[in-house]
Design a binder for these strands. Structure first.
Lengths: 354, 354
DNA sequence: TTGAAAGCGCTAACAC
DNA sequence: GTGTTAGCGCTTTCAA
């Protein structure tokens, strides 16, 4: 008796025509009350509204997107939602998108450059109003070229590529860029450490080829150079931006007998791992070793001692990304924005006492 | 000279027809190579592919969704992406969705029941394959009724409502439910505390009317009752699931001079705040006060001392939600799943020594 | 103020 | 194998 239906099949969603029939008007009239931007007699409108309610009607967003060409969607492409840094940017994106009457699509790439490209392609199919890509860029020619290609491709379908926290692709390329002063933040933090008397500062978590890493390290180096110092290459160790990598790297530093009085971790997550390793290694923080992080995510206040770090205005990055992309015609000159960063002093750093 | 164009306007995205023209075939042939499930002569296919590449063609997902009725999208509705608990479920959802060839839409509600309903409505417009709602439910008749309405409404358009971490709406209502053993986890944790000798255990962060809270508290109470004990109502304090609330509540408990040897925080976030307040109040953890949390999010390992907590399989909740909803025809009997929880012992609890 | 008709880009019968 | 035709549900001229 019961008819088997495909699980995905639109069983019997009502359409404008159903509503029209029930209200005794034409489909166009229904469409007009739907849009609201067109005069419809009050009585007619009421009848249509009533019919809609009775049929529990909802418009089909796809049909609507097909006719008009905007689909009212913003795409957010990120390595991993689970990272608090990205999650906070996501919040900004989502909130601004929602304020602008847009839906937000979430796509994750797990740090795989190939997936970034695949995802951007998918968003092109979806005709998203904007495609927001977050996180450091790979300083790799082929990768950059493909992003450039996508910038143009998206532009061609009326969409917009937005790069958050990564450098511009180049002049004349149709993309919105929202950066933060990455190098400046690292410079300020390193200066803080240096001026507190630290001279042997380990930099934990360099990722060669990643723009974010390059900029942070460059601030680190510049601060040294300003005092006529050179960072000891042995104290710069490579690894991904994760807690466990921070832990392992710090253990290794200790095991290798490297001498340092401070650690500048590439991110707060890395710092959390470093702190654990240091504690296990019997070092007191900040008495024996000062520790600084980068990002200022909530965990910075939960680790013990609370972490000195560089604040990055995550939510505002997300909001700005959406705002600039959607209003690019009104704001043609601010399509490259650089937000400020600043050092947040907490308990994990202090003046070196010899 | 430069022609002003609407920012959203589809400038000149190429269509199947453009491709067809260039390849010297018909639109259907192009569609066939697009789909891949239909025989096309190798030479023709090659020509079509070439034309696509040359025109930088991408299908219009909306046109496709309009014809067939599935739009290959899964919606994820959550209070706040920024909460690690939700973020980890989101990761599970996103990964499984991606494995099943679905895109993932993210919607946040900021704990506002009205927004939940609005968002579900929007997803109905989008014809999402599944709408996954995460987080505790409000035990409020009107709210439940509306969710029930949506369950039916989504079902009618071939979509599926999925409730994660909240109780079923009732029998016969077309919704998938993926829960975790919330009450059991609280029971186990309380039993752990009780059997460690603690008798005065504060429960911090009750939220009346929220199902999650009710279940946890019920496990807490049941464990007491099993030993013929009754929790002291003065030690059960109300507040939202956040770090700052945990902090304030714990300070208040201290200020009021309440006596307790253990704190069971409603969530790990709350626990993080409690730990800070306790430390500032001069209490040593776990020597003076044992602290336990719930959820087992990463912060549990970053607080000091590392937090004893109840593990909730967040990612698996997300994956299961997608899997069950999408394969509901093959798995009609497992549309109500309850995943297990377990106590994770770390350093913030220990046997009471008197 | 309303209706009829065309078409958005694609897929799926149905022919040939 | 491939082309023709007819919609999917909606918006939008163009008439009335």
């Amino acid at each position: 008796m019961a008819k088997k239906t495909e699980p995905e099949a639109n069983r019997d969603a009502s359409t404008v025509r159903d509503v029209a029939a029930r209200a005794g008007v034409s489909a166009s009239t229904v469409s007009r009350v739907l849009g609201g931007t067109y005069p419809v007699a009050a009585a007619t409108r009421a009848r249509v509204l009533k019919a809609m309610r009775e049929l529990d009607y909802v418009v089909n967003a796809h049909a609507r997107a097909l006719g008009g060409s905007t689909n009212k969607t913003v795409a957010f492409v990120v390595d991993d939602v689970t990272g608090p840094f990205y999650a906070h940017i996501a919040r900004g994106v989502e909130e601004q998108a929602s304020e602008e009457g847009r839906l937000c699509m979430l796509c994750t790439t797990h740090g795989d450059p190939k997936r970034v490209l695949a995802v951007v392609e998918t968003m092109r199919e979806q005709r998203a109003d904007a495609v927001i890509v977050v996180g450091g860029a790979w300083e790799d020619k082929a990768y950059q070229d493909r992003m450039t290609h996508f910038a143009h491709a998206l532009d061609r379908v009326g969409s917009r590529l937005v790069l958050v926290g990564r450098p511009p692709l180049g002049p004349g390329i149709p993309a919105t860029v929202v950066e933060y002063d990455n190098e400046g933040g690292a410079f300020a933090m390193t200066t803080h450490l240096l001026s507190s008397g630290h001279r042997r500062i380990a930099y934990v978590g360099r990722m060669p080829g990643l723009s974010t890493s390059g900029q942070r390290l460059s601030g680190f180096t510049r601060a040294h150079e300003l005092l006529g110092l050179t960072p000891d290459p042995e104290l710069i160790v490579d690894g991904a931006f994760s807690r466990s990598v921070g832990y392992q790297l710090a253990r290794q530093l200790l095991a290798d007998g490297r001498e340092f009085t401070a650690v500048f971790a590439a991110t707060d997550m890395v710092a959390a791992g470093v702190i654990q390793a240091l504690r296990e290694g019997g070092r007191r923080i900040p008495d024996d070793v000062a520790v600084a992080g980068y990002d200022d995510i909530p965990v910075a206040r939960d680790v013990y001692p609370a972490l000195t770090t560089v604040n990055v205005p995550q939510e505002e990055l997300g909001r700005a990304a959406v705002r600039l992309a959607l209003h690019r015609d009104e704001l043609p000159d601010s399509q490259h924005l650089v937000l400020g960063t600043h050092v947040v002093l907490r308990d994990s750093t202090r003046r070196l006492n010899r």
